[in-house]
Amino acid sequence: MDKFDYLVVGAGLFGSTFAYEAAQRGYRVKVIDKRAHIGGNIYTERIGGIDVHRYGAHIFHTQNDVIWQYMNQFTEFNHFINAPIANYRGNLYNLPFNMNTFYQLWGITSPAEAQAKIAEQRAELAGKKPQNLEEQAIALVGTDIYQRLIKSYTKKQWGKEPKDLPAFIIKRLPVRFTFDNNYFSDRYQGIPVAGYTAIVEKMLSSDRIVVETNQDFFDNKATYLREYPKIIYSGMIDNYFDYQLGVLEYRSLEFETTYLKNVANYQGNAVVNFTDEETPYTRIIEHKHFNFGQQPDTIITKEYSKEWRQGDEAYYPVNDQKNTHLYKKYVKLAKGEPNVIFGGRLGTYQYLNMDQVVANALALVKREFN
């Protein structure tokens, strides 16, 4: 076979960034992915002129000047600002929690009134160390915001009652006493005008990179380990070791996408979260609004959170104390694989934003080549 210097397992943002940088330095790289396409979870598919985010909404945002400039070599970003809406039993609220939200909740119009109201509602936890997520949320934002905008949404996301979840899951909640609906406080934010898939295509376009989709690493694991000098593995770390120390917990997602013909505007916003318990999905994404689309039709996706089972796609690690302890055991095991480097969300068992994924890949490049 052709000789390669690296095998990259996973054609998502982490693996593709590393492959691009390795190829720029003259190395030959094979990239494999078990899915039928490149891009991992940021994969976008253009349908009717609309870039559909197949695996959930992805808004690129960062404070890091270097990462922003780095990404701009692969794409042009638009000026999209993430301003989601919360729908609680038909009542709409702006997110993140800001003066618009407080007016919608309580009819108040001044920051002083809002601060006093939240302080009053936080009082029931005054002096008590929160023992679970419910108490932590109330200690941060009070009872009204918790009951309408956090409690049921959290239950749907995690599949557990908030009082049964550890307090550290919510370390902080953004509360602004200004009329500012921008969800992120990062300096840079936007959506690639050509979609995310186009970014990964450019990263993997070198003649030093060979890409193979529909290739499951575990179908030929022994062969790959034998024939490739170095492997960059971005899959689940516990899966790599055949779950021999136990199974790490993840949350999975299901997506129900509908093409709505002759509907130019379904919900008026890119993302609407449904924070009541009766609605089974967590949010509806209307994809055209990410790029300010004017198409005569629209495409929506209902997103459902569900328990992960072996064989499902893993989207979010459950970083509680039990799982963190187990992950550390796998890290020790990984040190016995000197030719395998574990990276990305699943390889390092942590929730990472896209800019953090790129930063981690570039940090690996620096360690590997400098």
Rank of each mutant, 00 (worst) to 15 (best):
E337H: 06
N220L: 08
E21K: 05
E286D: 10
E135S: 04
V8Q: 08
A139F: 12
I50L: 04
K261G: 12
Y349Q: 13
E21M: 05
L253V: 04
T324D: 14
V272Y: 01
L13M: 15
K366R: 14
V211M: 08
D320P: 12
V318M: 14
G10C: 08
G49V: 11
L364I: 10
E227T: 10
Y20R: 08
T197P: 13
A361K: 11
D51S: 02
T44Y: 03
Y183A: 11
Y103V: 01
I38E: 03
N94H: 15
Y93S: 02
I285C: 15
I299Y: 03
V272N: 07
A22E: 01
L245N: 00
Y70M: 12
I50H: 06
T258W: 07
N182E: 14
N182P: 04
E134L: 07
K163W: 09
E212Q: 10
K128P: 00
K3T: 13
K328C: 10
F255Q: 09
F218H: 13
P84M: 07
Y266E: 11
L253S: 01
H58K: 10
Q63W: 14
A361T: 06
I285R: 10
Q295H: 10
S234P: 04
F177V: 05
A123N: 13
E76K: 15
G293V: 06
G344I: 10
Q215N: 09
D5M: 08
E256W: 02
G195P: 03
I67K: 06
F77E: 09
F184I: 01
N269A: 12
N182W: 04
P192G: 10
V29G: 01
H61M: 08
R283K: 05
L245G: 00
D312Q: 12
T213D: 07
M354D: 10
V31L: 06
D216F: 01
N214M: 07
R283F: 01
V66K: 13
W308T: 07
E249L: 07
M71P: 02
A36K: 12
V331K: 11
V365K: 11
M71N: 11
A314K: 04
L346H: 12
N100S: 07
A198Y: 12
I285N: 13
